[in-house]
Write a protein that binds this DNA or RNA. Sequence first.
RNA 1: GCAGCUUAUUAGAUGAUCGCCCCAUGCUUAUUAAGAAAGUGUGGAGAGGAAAGUCCGGGCAGCAUAGAGCAAGACAGUCGCUAACAGCGACCGGGGGCAACCCUAGGGAAAGUGCCACAGAAACAAAACUACCCUUCAUAGCUUUGUGCGAAAGGAGGGAAAAGGUGAAACGAGUGGGGUAAAAGCCCACAGCAUGUUAUGGUGACAUGGCGUGAAGGUAAACCCUGUCCGCUGCAAGGAGAUCUGCAUUAAGAGUAGCUCGCUCGCAGGUCGAUAUCCGCUUGAUAUGGUAGGCAACUACUAGACUAGAUAGAUGAUCAUCCACGACAGAACCCGGCUUAUCGAUAAACUGCCAAC
RNA 2: GGAGGAGUACCCAAGUGGCUGAAGGGGAUGGUUUGCUAAAUCAUUAGUCUGGGGAGACCUGGAGCGGGAGUUCGAAUCUCCCCUCCUCCG
Length: 127
Amino acid sequence: MIPFSNRFHGHSSLNYVYKNGQAVRNRSVTIKYVANKHRDKSRIAVVISKKTLKSAVRRNLIRRRIYEYVRLKIPDLKAVYDIAIIVTSSDFINLSHTEMSQQIDQLFFSARIIPKNKSIKTTPKES
RNA sequence: GCAGCUUAUUAGAUGAUCGCCCCAUGCUUAUUAAGAAAGUGUGGAGAGGAAAGUCCGGGCAGCAUAGAGCAAGACAGUCGCUAACAGCGACCGGGGGCAACCCUAGGGAAAGUGCCACAGAAACAAAACUACCCUUCAUAGCUUUGUGCGAAAGGAGGGAAAAGGUGAAACGAGUGGGGUAAAAGCCCACAGCAUGUUAUGGUGACAUGGCGUGAAGGUAAACCCUGUCCGCUGCAAGGAGAUCUGCAUUAAGAGUAGCUCGCUCGCAGGUCGAUAUCCGCUUGAUAUGGUAGGCAACUACUAGACUAGAUAGAUGAUCAUCCACGACAGAACCCGGCUUAUCGAUAAACUGCCAAC
RNA sequence: GGAGGAGUACCCAAGUGGCUGAAGGGGAUGGUUUGCUAAAUCAUUAGUCUGGGGAGACCUGGAGCGGGAGUUCGAAUCUCCCCUCCUCCG
């Protein structure tokens, strides 16, 4: 999980991201993001609908894996962002760790939240 | 050894690195003290047998310290257990299995009402219809020619409820004998059923036997009757600000239930501040061990223990090794059950068959 | 987390124990009408799964009212347990 200060608190702050954020998406994940100049720390949420995956255990598992990977990316962000990662396909549960990290890296780069070459350098360091 | 049956336990393990929530405690922001917040260090602890479905029951909270009557609803063998229950235990009756054992919404149909389609003579009150039997009328005919006898079909009167291609079910006591014009528990013997009473055993449901009486279709997960229980809403319950104006003080109105009573309460609006935070929130019908009681469910006493409390919601990620290659699945106020989902592994008791001693 | 409701043919739906071969409407298919279409009008329609027969057109048996049990002679309907979908709450 990510620290308490990097989470969203309350419903309305997430609604702001949904309404005003920019979106990048691929087949199974959508990322909405918006820059926030009032805060010192970025906030990140992972959203999985009960309709996409019925089992609570599997939803938790996806959420934890994404949170864990994104937690390591927080220091690399260019600025302070509010980010919502919305999972829209139940196939996401079957991805291996490398497949998952590739998809998220790709989306983060195309959103221009993190610089490309740094993201390539950091991943071997972490592992 | 094979096949089966019941119960209980368990629910991947170990290590490395990086992280999360809560609690305790130290330091810093910050040199009087106290409190709050943020950061940071150390230590402790961190999902289930079903956490699920929300199907029952209870605690707790608000409405009266939850009160009365009706309505509505739930339950249904007996005795016990329990805070309570539609639960559990033991037993009784019924059904299944060679057996261990399993299943069982199991009060009342002689209080009343309804329903029993189609088919069938008839669907529950008894009768009618067909067939059966007797008497009689009348006729063909026979004839000893006498107001003699008299078949079948037919008309009339009567008998009995034994027979009736249907149907889930047919008047609801079977078999054999007697009996009769023909029949029938009409009578007899044997066997069975219901009910009353009585004896024995059992707390009881009930079981076994004696005596008397009797002939009653099914359906109550149809209405209903009998007995027992039951107020409603649910932690999104509920609690925690400041201030001003108007109306009212009996009455009116409002509040919790479908209605009646009863009970309680002043009501309406504006402004500021919020749409959040804190409390409720985990020590409890608590689990574990021991002793005693009980066939058991369970209860009493005792010892030490504290074992999630989040709020976009904490147990994870990555890697390595091992094996049986890991099923179903994530607490949200808390308990007791039920039901449903579930890869396997282990242990114990018991039953049947086969073999050996 | 808690409370309530619904599920019948491709779609909308009626049906509260028995002749349901599942009413009715839309849709689909084929006629009539028109120079052609639309509209109107008439007729047909278990159309899903499965067993058997047939070269095929088609004929025929069974199941089937979200799924599974039970009560009953008989269940879309009554009872119980699941599944799916929808709505509400400070």
